[in-house]
């Protein structure tokens, strides 16, 4: 079809690394490391959008890549670094519900599940890039959601949310090359706002309780 096999292979490689970074966001111990992995994941998303833009000759996808780079690799990390106190990033051991090997194994199951879910959809489309982007995007969505479930710290949970968003766009850029620019524009406004709100909230929680481990905030406290 459209696009050379090398472009397709590069896109597949980007997808694989994209998935690896999603796994990293699930499994890393340090808050700072998961933030850096999220930045890397966004760069890979932008790269995939550029590849698809070249292959399908769509100027919209280049715009998607530019917006992704501007918001997710520069604006959001900057916001997170400045609204949340530096103490949170110094934490080495993030509290988590499951230990790392079992959460990695569950992640593997989730990836298989993503392929199972994507399979009936794949038979209806003929674009080769969708074969790569759709299942991997869904897998990244699942892993992001799983990150939110398994982490007990506010900032890594936010990163899980952002990883879900990345997964949606990773699948989206392959399916509809024209719509995604509108959606990405909307998200470019939305997501920093969410980041800012959660960042401020985290700051308040931290100032009040001295911790951001939201797992401990299960019960009410008498003043």
């Amino acid at each position: 079809m459209n696009g050379s096999p090398v472009l397709f292979a590069l896109d597949a490689l980007t997808g694989a690394l994209f998935l690896l970074t999603a796994l990293g966001v699930v499994a890393t111990r340090q808050v700072l490391a998961s933030l850096q992995l999220f930045i890397l994941q966004s760069v890979l998303l932008a790269f995939s959008a550029v590849l698809l833009g070249i292959a399908q000759g769509s100027i919209h996808l280049f715009a998607v890549a530019a917006i992704t780079l501007a918001t997710k690799t520069l604006l959001i990390p900057w916001l997170l670094r400045h609204t949340v106190s530096a103490e949170v990033y110094r934490t080495r051991e993030i509290e988590r519900v499951l230990n790392i090997p079992s959460s990695l194994l569950i992640s593997a199951v989730l990836i298989v599940l993503a392929y199972v879910v994507a399979n009936p959809l794949l038979s209806t489309v003929a674009v080769p890039f969708v074969q790569v982007n759709l299942p991997l995007g869904i897998a990244a969505m699942f892993l992001g959601a799983f990150t939110i479930a398994v982490r007990r710290e506010a900032v890594p949970q936010l990163l899980g949310l952002l990883a879900v968003e990345n997964g949606v766009f990773f699948a989206g850029v392959a399916i509809v090359p024209n719509l995604s620019v509108i959606a990405e524009l909307a998200a470019a406004v939305d997501v920093p706002v969410i980041t800012l709100v959660i960042g401020m909230l985290t700051r308040r929680i931290h100032a009040r309780l001295g911790t951001t481990a939201v797992g401990q905030l299960a019960s009410l406290r008498e003043q």
């Binding site: 690896l20 796994l23 499994a27 790392i100 090997p101 990695l104 990836i111 298989v112 790569v132 299942p135």
Partner: peptide, 21 residues
Amino acid sequence: TEFLGAAFVISVVAVITQLSE
């Protein structure tokens, strides 16, 4: 265990991507 668990998951992902393509 975490280090090699990560290696295992990576290799499983390799199988999955290979099978699905």
